[in-house]
Design a protein around this nucleic acid. Structure first.
Lengths: 234, 234
DNA sequence: ATATTGTATTATGTATACAATTTAATCCTA
DNA sequence: TAGGATTAAATTGTATACATAATACAATAT
């Protein structure tokens, strides 16, 4: 009996340490928002969600507070929380900030990365290009997202990485809409290729500038998509 | 009577709405950290603080979670929270991100502000210069802080403003240290003057670049100060 | 019929009680 | 006496009960 407990410390540092309950709930809520189970503007009633996920109000409230800090839901004192709705303007403002962060990330990445890591980035880029050529939107999107994240993480600045992650989560599923337009997709792919070339050339300022412009443009397109969808609902 | 209600929208929206308890506690904790009542690395025991502030654990835990999201304290599951300690490296990484945000803010401010608001900024700048000339460190610092905040808020991008605020709070009292060195103070003052000139000239890219460099430099200096203080404690 | 006030219901905010986990202290055993 | 396990204390995590504020509804008056 006692031995079994001791094993705990013998093996790995923290293998059995699963996420905390509030974190798991927060993840679940995020997914519900991304999946559209909770649509924007929807009222969030604590007790309802508690029954659904079979937890008590205390950890649920913590999770709600987390999402609130992340900007995914808006919380009014004594008046409950709602899934945050986002206007085209807010979306473009959001991407304005993200573009600036990615510009910095790109510059840092170019200046500090080892050649081998740049090569790994190129592999992703080529795979993305293949998906584009094959017209595989979903796979392209996944790779695209992965590349952006990779570049940010290659900056090796934890605060930058974290801040970027938080802001990106606000864009949620809307990012998909950036590729709604075929022309924009072609354009975005071309931009990525130019960015990658600049990175490989070690031209940090240029790579940064290009990345900023690319993300900024993405934000505009997403904003327009939202506006179009809002004015002419499905 | 109905008119009276209508007036509501004419004047102010919600003037009487006071802060919530968790928010007040969070403010209090932040101040305790800034004031050094809670020093970095200090263990945070919920029940102790609850007695001190005379509140129950529930709102206290919410406040702690808020500070944790802001990065002012670090929270380990089941193991409690500690006031976050910050290394020189982290401080410079922090300012690296802040510098990027302020670069963006400055560009936006230059491009979107009305002349009258630029003039108001100049007033602050001149007052700061006066304090510098008079050797009034504390007043200079207050004005300096105010100018940076003003420029960020003049960007009119709420997400940028909020993100910047959160990151700045992590720098807390350490920012004071940026002026520990007399030479740096003179240097910083000169940088501010050049930045202001670029803003007035409407040169957004240049103003942005200068601001970025200025903040970046500040971060380095603060980092060095921390390092010096750490190696040779008072 | 409309508007206003009072009441009931519902949901959120706070406090407390209980459970689980970590940290320490104590008591063995080699 | 040192090492280690076991137990005790303290602290965090979770659930629930209570308090308070907001909303919905109904009744009354204008």
């Amino acid at each position: 009996m006692a031995r079994a407990i001791k094993k705990n410390t013998d093996r790995k540092p923290a293998p059995i340490r699963r996420k905390t309950l509030p974190e798991e709930i927060a993840d679940h809520l995020r997914q519900m928002i991304i999946d559209g189970v909770l649509k924007e503007g929807d009222r969030i009633v604590e007790t309802e969600l508690c029954e659904t996920l079979n937890v008590s109000r205390t950890p649920m409230r913590e999770a709600i507070k987390t999402l609130s800090h992340e900007g995914l839901i808006k919380h009014q004192p004594n008046r409950g929380a709602r899934v945050a709705s986002i206007t085209p303007l807010e979306m473009s403002q959001l991407f304005e900030v993200i573009s600036s962060l990615e510009q910095l990330a790109t510059e840092l990445t170019v200046r500090t990365s080892k050649p081998i890591d740049i090569k790994r980035l190129r592999v992703l880029q080529d795979r993305m290009a293949a998906h584009h050529k094959a017209g595989e939107r979903k796979d392209y999107f996944a790779l695209n997202h992965q590349i952006h994240l990779r570049i940010v993480s290659m900056s090796k600045n934890p605060i930058l990485i974290e801040t970027h992650g938080t802001l990106m989560s606000r864009a949620r599923h809307f990012r998909y809409w950036a590729l709604a337009d075929e022309d924009r997709w072609v354009e975005a792919m071309a931009e990525h290729e130019v960015i990658m070339t600049a990175i490989e050339a070690g031209d940090a300022p240029r790579a940064g500038q290009l990345m900023k412009a690319h993300v900024l443009r993405t934000g505009e397109v997403v904003g327009l998509s939202i506006k179009a969808a809002t004015n002419a609902p499905e």
